[in-house]
C-alpha cells in the first residue's frame, strides 16, 4: 500500500480561484521526507491543510496509509500530527508545558505525557530550555519546540509546513540535522520554498506551481526531466547568447542562467573566462530543475540577447 495517494485533488475558493487544480501525487510506503516545493502562493499550504484534515477539498480524493482523508478524518487523526505554517508555542507556556498540553489533548495519560514531553525535547536537543518561557526562546529553538511537540506523540506521519522559514542559516542547519535523524522513523511531509532544503533532506520531491503538480519523483527522476546536465550562472549583468544546445533563463536580478551539455558548458566557460566574466558552473541542482520547470526558457519568450560570445 502506498503511503500517500492524491487523485485529482481540487480546491477552489469562493471567488473561483483555484488553490489546487487536479493535483495527483503518489508516495510509496516508506519513512523519509517528502518535500513539496513551490513559490509563495503555489498552493502548498492548502494541500497540507487538506491532507492534515483541516480543510475540505472541493473535489478529488486523498488517502494516507489507505485512510480516506475526506471521509475518515477521525481515523486519520490517530496517526498524523501537523505543525502549521507560522505556528508558535504558546507564549505563556514553557516548552515542557506546551508539549505536555499537546499530548494531553491527544489523550495521553498525565504520567505518560509528562515522560514523553521531556524525552521529546531532549531528542531535539533542547532539554536545557524545557522550563524557559517560550516567549524568551530564539526563533530556531521555538521551531524545534514545535517539531518536538509533534514527534512526542505516537503519530508517525508528520506535516511540517515551511518549518525553517525565517530562520538564520545556522538554526536552519541545526533543524535540518534533526529532521534528517527523525525521518528514519517518521514519514515527514515537508513544504518549503528553500530548494536547498529539499535537495538536502528529501527522498522524494514534488514541484507545485499555480495549484498544479509540475513534476514529482526522486531528485534523480527530476534531473532526468531536464535535458541538459550542466548549469552555468553568469554572476554579473553581462549579456550572453543562448547556447546552441541548451536553454537560457534570465533571472529576476538580470543574471543569465544557462542549462546545456557538458561539452558546450566547457566551451562557454572558456569564453567567459576569456572575457573576465564572473560565473559558476555546476551539475544541475534542484534550483536549476525548479527554474526549468516553473519558468519558461528565454527561447520561448523571445527575450534573449543576440550578442556573440567573443
Amino acid at each position: 500500500m502506498d503511503r500517500l495517494v492524491v487523485t485529482n485533488l481540487t480546491k477552489r475558493y469562493e471567488k473561483g480561484k483555484f488553490a489546487l487544480n487536479r493535483v495527483s501525487l503518489t508516495v510509496p510506503s516508506s519513512n523519509g521526507i517528502f518535500a513539496l516545493i513551490g513559490r509563495n502562493g503555489a498552493g502548498k499550504t492548502t494541500l497540507v491543510r487538506i491532507l492534515a484534515t483541516q480543510l475540505s477539498p472541493t473535489s478529488g480524493s486523498a488517502h494516507i496509509n489507505g485512510i480516506d482523508v475526506v471521509k475518515e478524518p477521525e481515523k486519520l487523526r490517530e496517526i498524523i500530527a501537523c505543525v502549521p505554517q507560522e505556528a508558535r508555542a504558546i507564549n505563556w507556556t514553557t516548552p515542557k508545558q506546551f508539549v505536555y498540553a499537546y499530548l494531553l489533548w491527544r489523550g495521553y495519560s498525565f504520567k505518560e505525557a509528562a515522560k514523553r514531553a521531556v524525552d521529546s525535547l531532549k531528542r531535539l536537543g533542547i532539554g536545557g530550555y524545557m522550563d524557559t518561557a517560550s516567549r524568551k526562546l530564539s526563533g530556531g529553538t521555538k521551531r524545534k519546540v514545535l517539531v518536538a511537540t509533534v514527534i512526542s506523540s505516537e503519530a508517525k506521519i508528520i506535516f511540517l509546513d515551511e518549518p525553517t522559514t525565517g530562520l538564520d542559516p545556522l538554526s536552519r542547519n541545526e533543524l535540518w540535522e534533526k529532521l534528517a535523524e527523525l525521518k528514519k522513523d517518521h514519514f515527514i511531509f515537508l513544504t518549503t520554498h528553500y530548494l536547498e532544503e529539499a535537495e538536502k533532506l528529501a527522498d522524494r520531491i514534488a514541484i507545485l506551481e499555480n495549484g498544479k503538480i509540475m513534476a514529482q519523483g526522486t531528485l534523480d527522476d527530476l534531473r532526468k526531466m531536464v535535458k541538459y546536465p550542466y548549469s552555468i550562472t553568469v554572476l554579473s549583468q553581462h549579456k550572453v547568447q543562448k547556447p546552441k544546445n541548451g536553454e537560457m533563463i534570465i533571472g529576476v536580478d538580470g543574471h543569465s542562467q544557462i542549462l546545456t551539455t557538458e561539452r558546450e558548458a566547457k566551451e562557454i566557460a572558456r569564453k567567459l573566462v576569456g572575457k573576465g566574466v564572473k560565473f559558476s558552473m555546476n551539475p544541475i541542482s534542484l534550483d536549476d530543475i525548479f527554474y526549468h520547470i516553473v519558468r519558461k526558457p528565454v527561447e520561448e519568450e523571445g527575450n534573449y540577447d543576440e550578442e556573440e560570445w567573443a
Binding site: 501537523c82 508558535r88 504558546i90 507564549n91 511537540t149
Partner: peptide, 14 residues
C-alpha cells in the same frame, strides 16, 4: 490565529 494551535489540535484525535 496567533499560535495556530487550533490547526494542530484539529489534526489530532481530539
Amino acid at each position: 490565529n496567533d499560535f495556530r494551535v487550533q490547526d494542530m489540535v484539529v489534526s489530532s484525535p481530539l
